[in-house]
Nucleic acid binder design. Structure first.
Lengths: 194, 194
DNA sequence: AAAGCATTGTACCGATCGGTAAACAATTTA
DNA sequence: TAAATTGTTTACCGATCGGTACAATGCTTT
């Protein structure tokens, strides 16, 4: 009875939700077998190195998704303002309007963070770099772009934590909307005279 | 040989660092006995209900610290601008310039979050409420205070995650400084004409 | 049909999990 | 000094941990 589940990528999608919901240490193999419906044999067939490889696969999958759906859009969308709109819309959708945590953040806040330091660093620094360039294209003064990018990316993470803690997903959307207004060209937000 | 460790509160301080560093699920009893130097017997003497009671005690301790050092300062400092300065300075110091995670955030991002939902909710909503009032006292338009408070509190959480993920504690200070500028009275930051 | 590979279920491994029991030592109280 | 109280040590419990072994099953190719 092979092929109960279509593909490895389907398994990865399920694993992602499990890790998101229970954290790395909280996602036991018995929980994973229960939620995926796969026995240990199947899991270790797909991921011979076990749980760590499962998490690596999930993080790689997430990183790839962000690269193709967000980072590439930031770089390749001609109109920078539109690029930012795409990003904020994609983020709101990806995180299900605040009902879904970011697995990168979950891992970063867990004891397993050093085991996945490279993945975390790559995800956040890539996002920061691409966002900073887009902000500059959109009219933000060069000197401020990197810092604003940090504020936005960190703000997204924090808003997810906040929304979950307050048990109010709406908090995510409210913060996200405010962060988006920070991207408006500087000249529209502040009088330029000293 | 009783009284190896001075007080229950010393144990709580050690537990706080362990939970911060390893998360709730990652903080095993063997790790706790090793790091605290206390055997299981001693630990269960202090916390008869085990790990959950340890975490409750730590969260309660943290909540009390924030109440007395931050929330009370926000409410009781006459000068609102000064109150905000105190808050940002205390936050920067408490989180060790970005080298220390927030245990509330750590728990919120873990699978144990529902077990401590009340503590998390109280911490964030109290902070939000007191900060919002202070912001209004400082000249932020009433309609914006709650949203700005959310942005700041979430931003702090996210900045901690970001700093750890980038392995760059400085990112925390940079974001914190930006958040602080958001507290400047509205009229100084934006031209009021439509 | 036969062979070969991909996939799965089951039983099992040693280690560790959170937690308990109870004897015992130190300190405080009477 | 004797009795409680408080704190500690040690050994142990059943359950679960992550991981392995391997036979069996399905699918694909020939």
């Amino acid at each position: 009875m092979s092929r109960v589940v279509a593909e490895r990528r389907d398994v990865i999608a399920m694993l992602a939700e499990i890790f998101r919901e229970h954290g790395y240490d909280g996602a036991s193999l018995s929980l994973i077998t229960e939620k995926t419906g796969l026995g240990k044999g199947s899991l270790y067939h797909f991921f011979p190195r076990g749980k760590e490889e499962m998490a690596e696969a999930v993080l790689g999958d997430i990183a790839a998704w962000f690269r193709t759906h967000i980072f590439d859009a930031l770089r390749n969308t001609e109109n920078a303002e539109q690029a930012l709109e795409v990003m904020f819309a994609a983020v709101d959708s990806y995180f299900r309007q605040g009902r879904r945590l970011c697995l990168m953040g979950v891992i970063a806040a867990s004891g397993a963070h050093d085991r996945f330091a490279r993945e975390l660093n790559g995800y956040f620094s890539d996002w920061r770099a691409d966002l900073a360039v887009t902000l500059e294209r959109n009219g933000t003064p060069r000197a401020e772009c990197a810092a604003l990018a940090e504020e936005i990316i960190g703000g997204i993470q924090g808003a997810l934590i906040l929304a979950r803690s307050l048990d109010d997903p709406g908090a995510f959307g409210r913060v996200l909307a405010r962060l988006q207004t920070r991207c408006l060209p500087y000249r529209e937000k502040r009088d330029t005279s000293g």
